[in-house]
């Protein structure tokens, strides 16, 4: 019974830690996409080769989309785990 209460007490804390960790990882990966976006803007301003710009844009969208997908899956799994712990 006491162990169950401990689990219930620790579940929100674990969720908080995991959420913060997930957000940090999400931001870390999103930073790469943001850097790519800035690079694309800069390259467009200096009228760089459009093929490279399109490639960079595709990579930026792929990284950001993958990051979003992973973050959503991670949040869903963490929420499920916390709900079971409560």
């Amino acid at each position: 019974m006491e162990e169950n209460t401990d689990q219930t007490k620790w579940a929100p804390k674990t969720f908080f830690f995991e959420a913060v960790s997930g957000i940090l990882i999400f931001i870390t990966i999103a930073l790469a996409a943001i850097f790519l976006s800035y690079s694309v803007s800069y390259l467009e301003a200096i009228k760089f080769d459009p093929v490279i710009i399109y490639g960079l844009k595709a990579a930026e969208y792929a990284i950001f989309g993958c990051d979003l997908f992973l973050f959503a899956v991670f949040l869903f799994a963490t929420t499920k785990k916390t709900y079971r712990g409560l």
């Binding site: 960790s21 990882i25 992973l70 899956v73 991670f74 963490t78």
Partner: peptide, 19 residues
């Protein structure tokens, strides 16, 4: 230290769908 261990576990869980 707890956050650190949770962060490592979370990172593993974060990228596990890709794997």
């Amino acid at each position: 230290s707890e956050f650190k261990s949770t962060f490592i576990t979370s990172a593993h869980n974060y990228f596990s769908p890709l794997a």
